[in-house]
């Protein structure tokens, strides 16, 4: 695998250094590490990294500058892969990130960094144009009564939750300890029951599922 170039935006030094160490240990190249929103937009546009890892809350305002900067950079560079990290997750922000339908979006709780293997996999998935949505966002999507999901079997709902997080069939199979073929059967059934167009493309698939869940 080629060395992925990362721009990192995190204002807390402790966390920034930790993430830089983590990325370097996993053979990423951190081309810039910034601590504020305006600098982030400039660096993203100038350096065009393979993926940006961005804290939602950044100076100068300490509100959602990171998110706004990521969205601004993606307007100039459509599809620029961005993984947003946050101490809390909001469906509202997930929708804003996914709104352009171009993929290459990650939105995870900072806690997920602790599961290094999964976190690195998520960064790589986003860099490849995929989606990595935090399980707690997906849980809220599945929890709401907006959409009829009663037709799905418990197993299918589990598969749907993983799918909505942006995982591939292989990853879902590994985490549910079933065969990839079984996952394929479940996904086909889910798509039929929900009346969605099946797609081989992981990314298009997750966007269809999210569009359905968001209503």
């Amino acid at each position: 695998m080629s060395r992925l170039r990362i721009v990192l935006a995190e204002d807390l030094t402790l966390l920034r250094d930790g993430l830089i160490r983590l990325f370097q240990a996993h053979d990423f190249e951190v081309v810039a590490a910034v601590d504020n929103g305006p600098q982030l937009v400039r660096d993203l546009v100038a350096l065009r990294p393979d993926v940006a890892v961005v804290d939602v809350r950044l100076p100068p305002g300490h509100t959602d500058e990171g998110l706004r900067a990521a969205l601004a950079a993606r307007q100039q560079l459509p599809g620029l892969p961005v993984l947003v990290l946050s101490q809390y997750v909001e469906q509202l922000y997930a929708r804003e990130l996914l709104a352009d339908g171009l993929g290459g979006i990650g939105y995870l709780l900072k806690d997920r960094v602790s599961d290094v293997g999964q976190f690195i996999a998520a960064v790589r998935r986003v860099a490849a144009g995929g989606t990595a949505l935090d399980p707690s966002v997906v849980a809220k999507l599945l929890d709401s009564r907006r959409r009829p999901l009663d037709r799905l079997s418990p197993r299918e709902r589990e598969v749907l939750a993983h799918m909505a997080q942006g995982r591939s069939n292989a990853a879902i199979a590994a985490s549910l300890v079933i065969t990839e073929k079984a996952v394929g059967k479940h996904t086909a059934s889910i798509f039929t029951k929900l009346g969605l167009q099946p797609s081989e493309d992981d990314n298009r698939r997750v966007l269809a599922v999210l569009a359905y869940l968001e209503g």
Partner: peptide
């Protein structure tokens, strides 16, 4: 409030 509305189990 918009973010709150999205999280509720009620449209």
């Amino acid at each position: 409030l918009r973010a709150l509305a999205l999280d509720l189990a009620l449209p």
